[in-house]
Simulated scan of single mutants.
Amino acid sequence: MAIVGEVISVFGFLRNAWKLRKERRDPTRLSANRLITAFEAHGIARQQIIRLLPAPVLEASPEVTMADFSSPEKLQHKLSPQLLDWAAEYLNLKRAWLDGVDEPPHVVIDRYKRPAEYRAWFQARQAQAPEVGRWMSVWKAKGEEIGPDGSGPLCLVYEETSEGLDSKEWSRYWLLSDEWRLDHSPCVENMAAAVAVARSLGILVTGHGLPLDKLTRVTTGKMLIPQAALHRRGRWYPEDLADPAPGRNTEWQRAVWEGGQAWLAEAHRDTP
């Protein structure tokens, strides 16, 4: 059985290597593959994509059919700028990523050392999409301590959930951090400040742990957020850093809270 497993592993490696080689030689196939992969990651089956296409996109791609979305090989011959523009906007992904350019897939709204600016951004989202469910989640490595000895990536994810096809909920995502670290105190303080801003606007905040390899791939732009979200394990409470309970908080928690408040106050000092 071990030999069979090794053969399967080698076969999978060779298949992925051949696929990568094909995509490097043919960037249109890479774009088609990323489009299909992104929709499936967001819970939309490839055969359902055509149901979402608006009339202007269909008019610009009159020959596209349901069957064309069944594989990257078929879809690559039916790609159009209008189709890629629409997919990027619908899923809230970077168009350059769909084009095959090596950039992170998700839109990044990083306000490092300027956390007060999250308020205006959150309020703009609330005005633009008033009917959606929304929350902010803070991801850390699974099993990593939230304290002075913690280390590893720290990832802030903003999510909006609404009704999709056949009354099934689906989500769009934004990254609110850019390779922050749990072992870098300004990052933790800025996270606490962002949590405080979100909570003041009625946005639910949650905390989760992810396997380190998955979390690292998200923070470096190598994995889609909904793909990584499938690996979330456990809960923790970021609001304990933003608003520590009197008498129950540690010296480290107090330092993080004070640091977060200082970053928020910095914006007021900079305002004329």
Rank of each mutant, 00 (worst) to 15 (best):
A120Q: 13
L75A: 07
G152S: 12
A141N: 08
R29K: 11
W97I: 08
G207Y: 09
Y158T: 00
F13M: 12
D26C: 07
G209F: 07
G143Y: 00
P54T: 00
Q128A: 13
L201V: 10
E117M: 14
A96D: 11
D183Y: 09
E131M: 11
K19L: 07
A262E: 14
I203Q: 12
Q123G: 06
R25M: 14
E159Y: 03
L230R: 15
K142I: 02
S185W: 00
V101Y: 00
L212T: 01
Y90F: 15
R119P: 02
S177C: 04
R269E: 15
K214P: 01
F122W: 06
S151G: 10
Y237P: 03
C187E: 01
R134A: 01
G43M: 07
A242C: 03
V57R: 09
N190C: 08
A87L: 03
L14V: 15
I225L: 14
D270Q: 15
A129Q: 14
R233W: 09
M191K: 06
D243E: 11
L52C: 00
V4I: 12
S9L: 00
V57C: 10
G150I: 02
V256L: 12
N33D: 05
Q126T: 01
A120K: 12
L35R: 06
R114V: 06
L14A: 15
S9Y: 00
T161F: 03
S185G: 06
A116E: 05
K22M: 07
A265W: 13
E163G: 08
H106E: 12
K113F: 05
W86S: 06
L224C: 03
S80Y: 01
G133A: 08
F122H: 09
R111V: 04
I225Q: 04
E6D: 11
A193V: 03
W174F: 15
E59F: 09
G207E: 08
E40M: 13
G260I: 02
V205S: 13
E40Q: 14
G234L: 04
T216Y: 03
V188M: 10
L98R: 00
A17H: 06
D110C: 09
A196W: 08
E251T: 14
V218I: 15
W263G: 00
A194D: 07
I3N: 07
S185R: 10
A87G: 02
A67F: 14
